[in-house]
Design a protein around this nucleic acid. Structure first.
Length: 282
DNA sequence: AACTGTCCCTGCAAGC
DNA sequence: TGCTTGCAGGGACAGT
């Protein structure tokens, strides 16, 4: 499922294949994908417009447009952005198609494909972000920015109750961590998912901070994780390889690869399937 | 206020 | 074999 590393990989693809190009035509199939506004709003907002940049905040992709508006794409569970040649056969669940003007005499299309239809495509006015995109305003710190430090983490976790994993998954605190990377991060930091965030020492928080940065950066280098379930691929249709480096996710019942002593347990924490080592996570 | 549970949706896999 | 059932999960929202 697209989390920060997958979204960052897609962003890099957009940088290569989408930024600088002009959108000549917009097709919207399923209206649920544009539910925040409307089919007409997306078509009006994108037709004839040039793309200036592709940035990311947490799991949100944001492209600045020469109209002054911005394009937001969220892949949610099963969304994919694919660059394709005009006329290529579109996969099932291709809900939005952007036709791009020729560059170097090559025409192409950007497809938004999303079987589970949780994903979203929106054009919004940056001046009205508070009312049009409240979730974007309430987003926490992005862990791959310089702003993210052990001190910031300490401030966010201070006096927090609930459990550690739920806090990692809460996008209002740290933005971009989903279920897979939360489990991998907690394993690397040697912390149980049910630890109390407010009780962690400075040394432990420093270790957790380092684990967040390390896991996410390694996953970005690997091009994200592709699972059987959602078949995440990048803009060119390439799979990621970080699933080969997973140490706990999807390994329930197996021996721990890190300590070789414990077994990987599977429980439910914060309403999500959770895998951790019974021996080396405390 | 802060935390937990439910829902949205489809494809796939397990079980009868 | 062919059906039904359950599960996967990001984030909004309702409930406690």
């Amino acid at each position: 499922m697209p989390e920060l590393p997958e979204v960052e990989t897609v962003r890099r693809g957009l940088q290569q294949n989408f930024v600088g190009r002009k959108i000549t035509k917009v097709e919207v199939g399923r209206e649920r994908t544009v539910r925040r506004t409307s089919r007409e709003a997306l078509i009006d907002g994108l037709t004839g417009v040039k793309v200036l940049s592709a940035t990311r905040r947490g799991k949100y992709l944001i492209c600045a447009l020469d109209s002054g508006q911005k394009l937001m794409v969220h892949l949610r569970m099963s969304g994919r952005l694919i660059i394709a040649k005009p006329g290529a056969s579109r996969p099932p669940h291709t809900h939005v198609v952007l036709h791009l003007a020729k560059t170097d005499s090559v025409e192409s299309e950007l497809w938004f494909v999303d079987p589970r239809t949780f994903g979203e495509v929106v054009v919004f006015d940056p001046d009205k972000v508070k009312t049009q995109m409240p979730d974007l305003v309430n987003l926490g710190v992005d862990p791959l920015t310089d702003e993210f430090s052990p001190q910031i983490l300490q401030g966010l976790f201070k006096n927090r109750r609930g459990n550690l994993k739920a806090l990692l998954l809460n996008q209002h605190f740290v933005a971009g961590i989903g279920n897979i990377y939360a489990d991998e991060i907690l394993h690397l930091a040697k912390l149980r998912p049910d630890r109390l965030p407010g009780r962690l020492t400075t040394a432990t928080l420093t270790r957790l901070h380092a684990a967040i940065v390390e896991v996410l950066n390694k996953a970005v280098v690997a091009g994200g994780s592709t699972l059987k379930d959602t078949q995440y691929v990048d803009l060119d249709g390439q799979t990621g390889s970080f699933q080969d480096e997973h140490r706990v996710y999807g390994r329930a019942g197996l021996q721990c690869l890190t300590c070789r002593k414990g077994r990987i347990l599977m429980t439910v924490v914060a309403g999500r399937t959770t895998c951790y080592c019974s021996a080396c996570q405390h």
